Amino acid sequence: MQTQKISYKRHRFPPQIIAHVVWLYVRFNLSLREVEEMMLGRGVDVSYETIRRWTVKFGPLIAHVLRRRQPGPGDVWHLDEVVVKIAGRSYWLWRAVDQNGVVLEEILQSRRDKRAAKRLLVKLMKRRGFVPKRIITDKLRSYGAAKREVAPGLDHWSHKGLLWLPSLMQDVFQTS
C-alpha cells in the first residue's frame, strides 16, 4: 500500500504552518478559536473557519502519516491482570505491554482462567501479526496453560518479581 502524498497546493499559508495548526488542534484538545488566538500571538492571522477546513482536509492524512512512522511493538510482552469493580461486580482487566511500555491490548473478563488468558494471547497475536520472542507473566498458571495451546514453542517466564524488572536485568537473569 502506497502512502498518499499530502499536497498543500493552492493554499496561502506554507505547509509548515498548516501542519502545525492541525497538529495543535488535534493533539491538545483545543477549540478552533483557541488555536486561532495562539497563532495570532505568533503573528499568523488565520481564522477559525480556515483551521476547521484544514483539519477536515489534512487531519486524516497527517494522522495516517504519523501512525505509519510509529515503530512496531517489541518482541517481549508483559502480561498481567488486575481486579476491577464495576457496578459492584468484580471483573478482571487483562493487559499486555511490550518492553518499551506501549500498551498492546486490554481485555475485560468476568473470569480469571485459562480461557480468558487464551483469548488475550490469541487476540494479541492476531492483531500484531507475529508471535513474540518471550512473554513474562506473574505466577498465574492460566498463562502457561493458554501458552501451551496457542504457541507451544514460545519462551515463557513466570516469576512473581520478574514482571517489572528492567529489560537489561531480565537478560542478566536469563544468562545465569
Rank of each mutant, 00 (worst) to 15 (best):
M39Q: 10
K5A: 14
R27N: 11
I136G: 01
V102T: 15
R10W: 13
A19M: 09
M169N: 12
V22A: 08
V150G: 03
H159N: 12
G41H: 07
V97I: 13
P152F: 07
K57A: 09
E49S: 15
K57M: 10
P15C: 03
E81I: 00
I136T: 02
F13W: 09
V21G: 00
V44W: 08
A87I: 05
E36I: 01
T3L: 14
H159F: 11
K139E: 12
A146E: 00
E149I: 11
L104Q: 01
V150W: 01
L140V: 10
D80H: 03
R42F: 07
S176F: 11
L66G: 06
H78P: 00
D45L: 12
P15Y: 03
V172Q: 15
E105L: 09
T175C: 14
R89P: 05
R119S: 01
K126Q: 12
S47G: 14
L79I: 04
P132G: 07
R89S: 13
D75S: 05
Q109C: 10
A145W: 07
V46I: 10
V82Q: 12
D98M: 02
M39N: 06
W77T: 00
W54G: 00
L154V: 02
M39K: 00
V22F: 07
T175S: 14
V103G: 07
D155L: 06
V22H: 05
E105V: 01
Q70T: 09
R127H: 10
S47E: 08
I17T: 09
I6A: 05
R53N: 11
R141K: 12
K133Y: 07
L40C: 08
G74R: 02
Y25W: 12
T137W: 00
L93W: 05
K85P: 03
Y91W: 13
R67A: 15
G161L: 10
R69L: 13
N100H: 15
R69D: 11
R42H: 08
S176N: 10
G129K: 03
P166E: 08
V102G: 06
V97T: 06
G72F: 04
A151R: 03
G72E: 10
R89D: 15
I17A: 06
P60M: 03
G101H: 05
E105K: 09
R68L: 13
V56G: 04
L154K: 01
